[in-house]
Design a protein around this nucleic acid. Structure first.
Length: 314
DNA sequence: CTCTGTGTTGAA
DNA sequence: TCAACACAGAGG
């Protein structure tokens, strides 16, 4: 038996777990990754993740929550942290206890909760008094947007969630974001992988249905609908990673976003300087729920609100 | 049954 | 404060 082979194969094979190059990230026996942070001689478990990078991000969030913005993190040194300083995400972190943040990380719900919080901030801003109490910055989802490019959203129609096993992609979005070039592609379509918020990958066929003259996602779509319990009126969002790999993401949420009362919101937010002046068109700013797009197009000088509207519109 | 996440240790 | 390792026992 070759000693060298023996030792190298042992190292490469299953005897030893691979170590992560990320702080706070430890390997799991099944190939997944755990995240942990220490505080006061005790380990705080932050959950398990498929990718080491996801675990590393969870550690970063916890590290900032536990130790402040000056803490050493895996990422964000020059990117996210400056944005987080004084950002809505900082308000979000301040508005929740360590235990709540840890719970979100363990449930992989942090990003969604953060987004909801920002929606609530915006809706709370419907009231002038509340507006003045909320430090409202221009960087909605900025950290998020560093990693993902928001493509478009569609409100699911009844037929999208019905038995046809397809969702129609509005033409302008299809041709802009999912171009089909070759004639063969036009006929047969292409298989696209979409990752959802849980890291699950959905392989969907994207093609052009000449019969209905529409671009559709099909073959596998029903499984997505079933898994997500997607209903007509829910919003399906498409995103793409900014990195070289250009991964596609798909996610959905209920159409009606809960609107938090102003009092509750205001009480959870530190008093800050008045936000930059928001101009509003009388007719639309009061909108709750979905159709904020018109509202937002009327708000200038406030990129956050504009972007929120863009995200909510269909 | 799967596999998380706790118990534990030694290094820094 | 940290990661490495083993495996009790949590959770489905």
């Amino acid at each position: 038996m070759d000693v060298l082979n023996e030792s190298t194969s042992e190292a490469a094979n299953s005897n030893k777990l691979p170590s992560s190059r990320y702080k706070g990230v430890v390997p799991q026996p099944n190939g997944r990754w755990g995240a942990q942070i220490y505080e006061k001689h005790q380990r705080v478990w932050l959950g398990t993740f498929n990718a080491a990078e996801e675990a590393a991000k969870a550690y970063d969030i916890a590290s900032i929550k536990f130790r402040g913005l000056e803490t050493i993190t895996n990422f964000n040194q020059n990117q996210l942290k400056p944005y987080m300083d004084g950002d809505n995400e900082t308000l979000f972190l301040q508005s929740h206890s360590k235990a709540e943040i840890v719970d979100m990380l363990r449930k992989h719900s942090y990003t969604n909760e953060l987004e909801m919080y920002k929606l609530k901030l915006f809706n709370a801003g419907d009231d002038d008094a509340a507006r003045k109490r909320i430090k409202c910055h221009v960087n909605l989802m900025e950290g998020y947007d560093h990693q993902r490019e928001w493509l478009f959203e569609k409100v699911a129609t009844p037929s999208d969630v019905g038995r046809l096993n397809r969702m129609v992609i509005p033409k302008q979005h299809a041709e802009k974001h999912f171009p089909l070039h070759l004639s063969e592609e036009l006929c047969k379509g292409v298989l696209l992988n979409f990752e959802d918020g849980e890291g699950k990958v959905w392989r969907l066929r994207y093609c052009y249905w000449s019969s209905s003259q529409s671009y559709v996602l099909t073959k596998g779509w029903t499984r997505f609908v079933k898994d997500k319990k997607l209903k007509a009126g829910d919003v399906v969002r498409f995103e793409r990673s900014r990195g070289e790999e250009k991964k596609m993401f798909i996610d959905c949420r209920p159409r009606n976003v809960e609107v938090l009362g102003l009092g509750e919101m205001a009480s959870r937010v530190e008093v800050e300087e008045p936000l930059s002046r928001v101009q509003e068109d009388d007719g639309v700013v009061r909108l709750f729920g979905v159709n904020i797009v018109e509202t937002c197009s009327c708000i200038v000088d406030n990129n956050m609100c504009w972007r929120l509207g863009a995200r909510i519109s269909s």
